[in-house]
């Protein structure tokens, strides 16, 4: 059954306002596949009923749940691999020189989802322990969804999740088995701090960063929103800081504050 056109328009406008997510008419299936399980779990009859309940005055929680369902994506450890190679081979060598007086590097994983990305950064740094001894690394993960932030903070993953992208030697080294699940050891967990953050709202309170991971988020936004988000991220970065985007994303034609790093796909530097 297709979604009533007025309901579709309401959901599209709501998601645009709440999260910047662009839902084109041909992506109606995405709304259905994400929202129908939610409709069932709430004991509702249809997406129509969900929409009418979202319009009620006290529907804030329900609205958040809908945003969560639409913006949460399955994540994996060391996704795409190359960003973590860039961290080891390009960013760290540069920053260990450029920041040697303050010996502090701040890393921001924007839209950190269930934590796989910031924890992959933390494990990468741990693997370089000798090089970074005496340095202070601060990793901040932000996400719009409280549900994924809670999961990220817990650092507990299913057997399936730890087999997506995580080399077995790192599983042995940094995880402890807990029943069917695997929990990241405390020394890795405490390297990452999580906080709620919507890329469409102001985030000037989180300070400046030397490295920003913002991967596979911009693809969901329209051009204007992409530009706004990149401009805001640029304000949180020092002039020679690094930005990582997803494989299908670019700053080209969107924002002129960054230039691409030659030979390093997805890696940009503040001009």
């Amino acid at each position: 059954m297709s979604i009533d056109s007025r309901d579709f328009e309401y959901l599209r406008d709501f998601l645009m306002k709440s999260s910047g997510l662009v839902v084109k008419p041909e992506k109606e299936y995405l709304l259905k596949s994400r929202l129908e399980p939610l409709v069932r779990s709430k004991g509702m009859a249809s997406i129509s009923e969900l929409v009418s309940k979202m319009k009620a005055p006290s529907a804030r929680d329900l609205q958040n749940t809908v945003t969560d369902a639409m913006t949460t994506n399955e994540s994996l450890f060391f996704r795409d691999k190359s960003p973590f190679e860039h961290l080891d081979d390009i960013m760290l060598p540069y920053l260990l020189e450029a920041r040697k007086t303050r010996r502090k590097v701040r890393i921001w994983c924007a839209a950190s989802s269930t934590g796989q990305e910031p924890y992959s950064v933390a494990m990468s740094l741990k693997e370089q322990a000798v090089k970074v001894a005496g340095w202070n690394f601060e990793i901040i993960g932000t996400d719009i969804s409280k549900t994924v932030l809670a999961k990220a903070s817990a650092g507990e993953y299913t057997q399936f999740e730890v087999q997506r992208g995580l080399p077995i030697k790192l599983l042995l080294k940094y995880f402890t088995q807990k029943g069917e699940n695997w929990v990241l050891n405390e020394d890795i967990r405490k390297m990452v701090k999580y906080q709620e953050g919507n890329l469409l709202e102001s985030f000037s309170n989180i300070g400046k960063f030397d490295i920003v991971f913002c991967r596979n988020v911009l693809i969901y936004f329209d051009l204007d929103t992409k530009r706004q988000v990149l401009e805001k991220i640029a304000k949180q970065m020092d002039p020679d800081s690094y930005l990582l985007l997803g494989a299908a994303e670019t700053v080209m034609g969107v924002c002129d504050k960054f230039e691409s790093v030659k030979g390093a796909r997805g890696l940009y530097k503040m001009k």
């Binding site: 087999q163 997506r164 080399p167 030697k169």
Partner: peptide, 21 residues
């Protein structure tokens, strides 16, 4: 791993895990 395994898949697995490993 000690005996020389390069990777390790815990069953049940799916296509994505096999490909990934």
């Amino acid at each position: 791993v000690q005996a020389g395994a390069d990777e390790y898949i815990m069953k049940p697995f799916d296509r994505e895990i096999l490909e990934n490993k």
